Structure formats: C-alpha cells, structure tokens
Simulated assay, not measured.
Amino acid sequence: MRKLVGFFIVVLSFLEPVVAQEISYKTIENINYYPKALQQSDTYLASQARLDIYYPEDKKDVPVIIWFHGGGLTGGSKEIPQALKNKGYCIVGVGYRLSPKVKASVCIEDATAAIAWTFKNIEAYNGDSKNIFVSGHSAGGYLALMSIMDKSRLAKYDINANDVAGLIPFSGHTITHFTIRAERGIPGEQPIVDAYAPLYFVRNDAPPILLITGDRELEMLGRYEENAYFYRMMKVAGQQHIKQYEMQGYGHNMTHPAYPLLLRFVAENSVKSEQ
C-alpha cells in the first residue's frame, strides 16, 4: 500500500513518456457491440450499448485501454478521458444500460460484452488484442473488476479473462455494488460479498492489477478499506502482481491525479510485439 502526495503526482505527470506530435488520431463513435438481432429487439440496448474508439491512424498494434464511466450504475455516459488522449494508445469508451431501466447486474453483462467485442475487433482500429487493459472510475471500476475477476463471464464469449493485460479500477467497489444491494432493500452501509462482488472471485492467476482509491478519510463510504481488503486477500491467495495506491488528499473524484498512474502501468505492463 502506498500513499501519494500531490507533489509526487505532479512530478509523475511530467515524467510521462513524450509521444511524437506528428501522430494523428481518429475517433469513431457509437459502435454497437451487440449483434444486430439484439439491437433490433431492444431499443434501449441499441441506444446505450455503444462504444467510441479513439486511436492513432498511422501506428499499428498499440496498447488498448477500455474505459468504463462512473455514475453508480444509474447515470453517466460513455467517455474518452482527455488525459488518456495523444499518448499513443487506443482508447475505448464504453456505454452501458443503466438501472432502474434494467437490473444493475445487466450493467456487468454489457461491460463484458464490450470487452469481448474489443478483443475480437480492435485490430481493425490499430489496437493490439494482446495488450488490452481494462479500467474505469467508481461504478466503472466495479464493472472492470467484475468482468475480469469472474472468469465465467468472458468465457461465454470464448475469451480467457487472463488474456487481459491489466486491470486498473479507480475507486471501484470490491464488495457487492450498493445499487445491487439497494435493489434488494439493503442499505449502502451494510456490506455484502456474494457473486456480484469482485472479492468473491479472489484468485492468484488474475492479470496484473493496480487498485487506486482516494484518501481513506475522504472516500465514499469504505471504498479505500474494501479495496485494501481485496488487495490483502489477493496477496494471501498468491497474486504477486497487484498494487494499491491511496491518493492522499483526494476524495472519491480522484481521476485527474490518477491518470498518470494508469498510463505508467500500461507502459510497464504492455507486452512487446514480436513483429
């Protein structure tokens, strides 16, 4: 576990690799990641289950960052964070259906489908399917964790979750999400660990993980502590490639100072192409 002060984050920002300015980027918006038959049968799915892709036009086989937006599984919309642009990577911003129009568990199904689509299609956008990193903030961090920790979800698409190059949730639930608990009439202060909790799927063979939360005294509910427990149980299970950072002085909305950590993690964990 590490505490990072604001000064260190600023220094990290200046130490990021400089990417040549001549690289040109393109954005493709509103790509449906479910089959047409499903889109035609469900108008809400067709409108929400879409993704945007931002990628370098003249550079192939670049690492990919899949980003899930936050919003408590009840709000928000797909986004490509400005801080991740112009860094030489392919960024996938994912939209998904929201509660209460669907059960919150459907959000996880959508997130998994988007990751599967990315594995199977990202090379057409100069991304490297061997270097896919999954990230997101708050509810998005939870979706990133659930989609990968529960290996059975991607297995339905004939994809091994361990083929993900890395998992970087920002302030994500590791217990059962509070919106799922609310659907059952359970208050947010009552923690539960069941099949909708990343903690339920602790294992030693997961991809490299970087857990980032805000300051334990400023975070939402016990977000730091549940991530710390996830970290500890993963270590006890034998996972060697996991770290946790506490962003000292920052609350739940700690994305801006955390982006440099995400970018450094991607740079350090990308598998070099054999080409």
Rank of each mutant, 00 (worst) to 15 (best):
D163Y: 03
P260T: 06
P257R: 10
S47N: 03
S47G: 07
E109M: 12
F68S: 07
E109V: 08
A197S: 15
E29W: 03
T179Q: 15
Y33C: 05
K156S: 07
L143M: 10
S129L: 01
S135Q: 02
I108V: 15
V19T: 15
V62C: 12
L143H: 02
G75V: 01
D163F: 05
E16A: 08
Y259S: 09
S105W: 00
E16W: 00
N160H: 13
A20Y: 07
L51C: 09
A111E: 12
P198Q: 06
D158L: 12
Q40I: 11
D110V: 05
M1I: 08
P35A: 13
K272Y: 06
P100M: 07
E79S: 14
W67F: 15
I80F: 09
D61R: 13
R153D: 03
L73G: 09
I23V: 14
K151R: 13
L98F: 03
Q48R: 14
L38F: 02
A165T: 12
F68Y: 15
W67V: 08
R2K: 15
I212R: 08
K85F: 00
V106S: 01
F178R: 03
T43D: 08
Q244A: 12
M220A: 06
E274H: 14
E274M: 05
G93N: 05
A37S: 11
Q21N: 11
Q240H: 11
R184T: 02
D58V: 02
Y34W: 10
M220Y: 15
E22I: 07
M233L: 14
I23G: 04
P187K: 08
V271M: 09
A124V: 08
I115R: 05
Q21C: 02
G95W: 01
S270H: 02
I65E: 08
M220P: 00
G6E: 11
G88H: 09
P207Y: 04
L15K: 03
F8N: 13
H252R: 09
N160S: 15
